[in-house]
Design a protein around this nucleic acid. Sequence first.
DNA 1: CCGATTTTGTTCTCACGTTCACAAGCTCCT
DNA 2: AGGAGCTTGTGAACGTGAGAACAAAATCGG
Lengths: 251, 251
Amino acid sequence: MTRASSRRPGPPTRTERGIPEATVARLPVYLRALTALSDSGIATASSEDLATAAGVNSAKLRKDLSYLGSYGTRGVGYDVEYLRYQIAREIGVTQDWAVVIVGIGNLGHALANYSGFGTRGFRIVALLDADPTLVGERIGDMEVRDFAQLEEIVEADRVSIGVITTPAGPAQEVCDRLVAAGVTSILNFAPVVLSVPDGVDIRKVDLSIELQILAYHEQRKSGEAALPQVPELPAMNGLTDLPSVGGGVGA
Amino acid sequence: MTRASSRRPGPPTRTERGIPEATVARLPVYLRALTALSDSGIATASSEDLATAAGVNSAKLRKDLSYLGSYGTRGVGYDVEYLRYQIAREIGVTQDWAVVIVGIGNLGHALANYSGFGTRGFRIVALLDADPTLVGERIGDMEVRDFAQLEEIVEADRVSIGVITTPAGPAQEVCDRLVAAGVTSILNFAPVVLSVPDGVDIRKVDLSIELQILAYHEQRKSGEAALPQVPELPAMNGLTDLPSVGGGVGA
DNA sequence: CCGATTTTGTTCTCACGTTCACAAGCTCCT
DNA sequence: AGGAGCTTGTGAACGTGAGAACAAAATCGG
């Protein structure tokens, strides 16, 4: 989702090294499942085994894997180590990606301490904040640096991924600075919609949105009997004004 | 997504008060955009305005809103306050939902401090942890309580939403306890696939998966010229054994 | 060496989600 | 009052994703 890169308008662009976005989003889950199996000393797994570990159904898993190539053996299954490496390579976590975290509040703090940042593949090279009272503070084995140093850090460490953990207010400005400095992937925790130019990928993590989605379903569960079909009508009471009823013009 | 509730196999279940899941996931974004417009003193907004503020296109926004009812006025647009209330009611955030957070590590700490938990609608009633050295610690105006008290808290405060911020290890057990205690919606930050019975909704927030998805796209950006079409073949070097190439049977 | 068994890779079909395009409906101006 | 100009709500076309089902390929036992 939120892929903002170039999109040539020409032909359907078939099999142009194109893995469906839905599949891409599941590959990390498969990777984690494979790592768990590997740690348990399991050398081979069927699509059924893997699917169970990853929480999907086996047909979907096989189809997903088929986009990467034919890495299984019919009648046997998949070699865990081999498949794990193939997926890791496909995702790109066989190399290390340099990451900066901007905004060292509660959440930035927590992420900075997040040991084993996923399962390798990512290296936090700087914690940045514009607040002078925070600059210099030590977190783990890192020190908070001034946001003004962003550009030189990005250049020096070839940073391609930025994590925004600022409040909503400064988030867009931080985002613009990151992009201008050369960052081309952004993970945004601030509760705002950020706009970025084409070629920059942005993903959002939003606690309150997740909670609200849960609340919607929760309401439907508990209310299924209580308020079965009283959706829109009675809610207009107590509201000061309505769209087209406004000044009572015309009629 | 990850809706785990009952699904009757019968007819297509058309218009059974059914808002598409993709739309549900966007309603909170619209709600936030409307709140921002409202705070700016804007009373009326067209679908184009709203769509821009929410980061979607206007056709999609109109279609999404049409599932809720006809709340706009042709030729004019939407009344910001009115629409905001309608969406809030549809989502269910006009009432307050009681939430418990389990696992007061770095992340749990950060979430506990997260002021204005979204935009109202949610109330943290307890912070729980099984670690005796944490129990009793004050965070903001709350005190960490023993996980053993889960059941009585859930019952006393009618808790329907649980947030899991434990490490991966205990997450499934915590999840089971939550479900057994009566929690029917779970937001999981632990990097594991949790299994829950039907009727319980679960959503996942996973930092390392998000980063990996970004890495995939990042790799495709930088590698588009460097390694254009060398996907699977050369990677087999250095691997001890391969699934079907193994003993060289057959041929 | 052959047939039974297992499990992958793929094809086909259906459901879901997105976008386009336009009729319906409202306001405002003359 | 009547027509011009907007903007919504929706029907229809299109694209993407999910799941069932099956043919192809590999192992294993006799």
